[in-house]
Design a protein around this nucleic acid. Structure first.
Length: 444
DNA sequence: TCTGGGGTCCTCTATCGA
DNA sequence: TCTGTCGATAGAGGACCC
């Protein structure tokens, strides 16, 4: 999908179409998740600090991501892909590999091109958004083709033309070559794919290590036999938070680690999993990151056990100077638990009690404390459906429009206006997916 | 200007038992 | 009995991807 999050927001908000839209964390330490093509003109791109994006494109619309909304659209697209082949490998919400041959959807260049164009039309009909298609004989090349096809296009790489195509390209085009490896190779005088081939396999292994070296050399020769894998088992589950301001207070650090442990367990249980290895992650004031881990005798999904392990791990970490990020993860996953059922049942009770004790705090906070995250949908008793354009100083500004309306008008209300309430996103196309529960989506 | 969140995989080192 | 080695496992860090 092209500039997926930003496109979804533009489809949902007529007044943003054709405008610079930036989706990402809006806090002081937020980064850009997706910039619309209009915003990219100003130099805004993914992973850029939000503050920098605001300087480059001060007049763009800045919105918080709505993952549940994007997920609903993504599921529709994935359904279209699965209709083409049973072998669909999602890479993220907005990208997937499809083995067209395995599904009998294509057997030669012409049928592949036809299937690709039909898919693009179906995606547009079903979601109102544009997607790009890359067709090639391997995953690496299909990915390169799809990058070239963006936005809203289709590119097919003819068998036999791969080497000539790759040769002059930057090494950074190859999967697995990021900033570090790219620099490393550049210092060795290697900047293009061609030069990787010239350097030879032995030299490459010497430069970047065994696994990476062999893999990279093969990729440079356009040899990529990796199969499309439909089902991937989850290997780890983790949660992490970056704080707006560094935390110095050790007590507060401990408290945050407990909360993260609970959130992690909630996710773990939600996936029906348990795990043996508990990992604590700490990013300090100077951005140096360290991890501490502990492997238990058997897998657990007991919040008390994970909390205690995380707390133990924290004791071996020096946090003087402050921490900007904390994270808790569980790996070594199993889909069963080996602990005795008594301990688990007791833990469960405690967990539920604590969660119950935690929840009301947010509800009781009352209308005065209501959050109106930028971009989220709302409904007004008199003016109908709209979205939050901004809020602050006890006021919230709402633009009243829907995916199929003309660009709407803006009105401002008090944040505690009883006529105003959060709403679920509306479908982008007739019969499109609704996003129940999006109202409660945590803002970033 | 100051760097998110959720993952995966690889490498190096230490340790331990056979 | 001592020593060396081998393989498995843990723990930490780093690179990369979307």
């Amino acid at each position: 999908m092209d500039a997926f999050f930003a496109s979804a927001e533009q489809a949902s908000k007529p007044s943003l179409r054709g405008k610079a839209v930036v989706v990402g964390g809006l806090g002081p330490r937020g980064v850009v998740a997706t910039a619309s093509y209009e915003a990219r003109v100003f130099g805004v791109h993914s992973a850029m600090p939000m503050a920098q994006a605001r300087r480059l494109a001060p007049n763009a619309a800045y919105l918080v991501p709505r993952f549940l909304f994007y997920r609903a659209i993504s599921e529709q697209v994935m359904r279209l892909l699965r209709a083409l082949s049973p072998l669909v490998e999602p890479l993220s919400l907005d990208e997937a590999f499809v083995d067209l041959e395995a599904g009998g959807a294509a057997w030669d260049e012409e049928s592949a091109r036809l299937a690709g164009e039909r898919l693009r039309a179906d995606i547009r009909d079903r979601t109102g958004l544009t997607g790009s298609v890359g067709l090639a004989a391997s995953k690496m090349l299909a990915k390169i083709a799809s990058e070239q096809a963006k936005p809203d296009g289709l590119v097919l790489i003819r068998p036999g033309t791969e080497r000539a195509l790759l040769g002059p390209m930057s090494v950074r085009i190859l999967p697995g070559v990021g900033p570090a490896t790219g620099d490393h190779l550049r210092r060795a005088g290697i900047t293009t794919v061609e030069e990787i081939v010239e350097a030879g396999e032995d030299e490459l292994v010497r430069l970047v290590g065994k696994a990476h070296g062999h893999g990279l050399y093969a990729m440079a020769l356009a040899r990529d036999e990796r199969p499309v894998v439909a089902e991937r088992d989850t290997k780890s589950v983790s949660v992490e938070d970056t704080y707006d301001v560094d935390i110095h207070d050790r007590i507060r650090v401990r408290l945050e680690v407990q909360r993260l442990a609970d959130r992690c367990v909630r996710r773990l249980r939600g996936a029906g999993l348990s795990g043996r290895t508990i990992v604590l992650k700490v990013r300090r004031y100077d951005f140096s990151t360290l991890t501490r881990s502990e492997t238990l005798r058997g897998p657990t999904d007991d919040p008390a056990v994970v909390r205690e392990a995380a707390a133990r791990l924290l004791e071996s970490v020096d946090t003087t100077g402050g921490v900007r990020l904390l994270g808790v993860g569980v790996s070594g996953l199993a889909d069963f638990t080996q602990e005795d059922l008594f301990a688990q049942a007791a833990g469960e009770e405690r967990f539920e009690e604590e969660v119950a004790a935690e929840e009301p705090a947010e509800v009781v906070a009352g209308p005065a404390e209501r959050r109106w995250p930028a971009g989220h949908d709302v409904r007004h008793a008199e003016y109908g459906h709209g979205w939050v354009q901004g809020s602050g100083l006890g006021r919230v500004t709402v633009r009243f429009e829907t995916p199929d309306s003309a660009p709407g008008r803006v009105r401002t209300f008090r944040t505690d206006d009883p006529a105003l309430e959060p709403a679920d996103p509306l479908p982008l196309t007739p019969g499109g997916p609704v996003t129940p529960g999006a109202v409660t989506e945590p803002s970033v």
